[in-house]
Design a protein around this nucleic acid. Structure first.
Lengths: 119, 119
DNA sequence: TATTGCTATAAACCTAGGTTTATAGTTCAT
DNA sequence: ATGAACTATAAACCTAGGTTTATAGCAATA
């Protein structure tokens, strides 16, 4: 697949795909170059980018994801394990904050919170 | 309370508290000025900022929160309701993406995903 | 009363995550 | 074989969410 097709399937702008690559977010196995230097992507890139989108949307940074998936950077298994475990804890915290936020929003909606009254 | 105390209790830097105010994120009821133009905060600001922190951390923008809590901006009840309902849906999506991300992370950790193999 | 500490504002600066622009080579359809 | 569409890179630009800096007034304590 060429970049335009990946862009259309994933919904990510072409500029973003190139940007992610510059940031070392795309492991080599997903992309090679043809004789004209055009990027040729393997089909698996689609699922990969889908996971990347999820991770980014829940607050991972590009650098963090890159550290986990990039061989070149060569993070040790123990380091990755620690990182993933910490991150999974963070995500549990996250779930709690979401529940809290939902309560707050519901209270605002129900008028149970008053931001009008002067103190 | 003066700004330094609020900062210490909430963990938010003084510069951030002033920044939030500039962004209309702090309803008037939580802050007034003394004779020297120093900010005097009511005790309730602490819980409020705690909710703000949660909302920000799960992806709300300052402007969105501001729209919900600020009287001056005077968003209609119906508009707020729609916004909150949409946001609660988004947060449900969010929970799903978190579950998905946890699975991905676990797979990376378990070596069930291979980013090494050349295609 | 002077030095240290807290407060204020405005404006410049910073970072992450992209997007846009400028320039140039490639390819496909007519 | 030529114009429209696609690809490439580098560099400038943009936005959100802050932080830092410069400058100045007020306060608390030796």
């Amino acid at each position: 697949m060429k970049i335009n097709e990946v862009s259309k399937i994933t919904g990510l702008p072409i500029s973003t795909l190139r940007f992610y690559e510059r940031k070392n977010l795309i492991p080599d196995m997903f992309v090679r170059r043809d004789e004209n230097n055009y990027r040729i992507y393997s089909d698996e890139i689609v699922d990969f980018l889908d996971d990347v989108k999820s991770l980014l949307s829940v607050g991972f940074s590009i650098e963090e994801i890159s550290l986990l998936v990039n061989q070149q950077l060569d993070l040790s298994y123990e380091a990755k394990k620690k990182m993933v475990e910490r991150k999974i804890e963070e995500m549990d915290e996250f779930q709690k904050r979401i529940s809290k936020s939902k309560k707050f929003l519901q209270a605002v909606l129900d008028g149970k919170v008053d931001f009008q009254t002067k103190c």
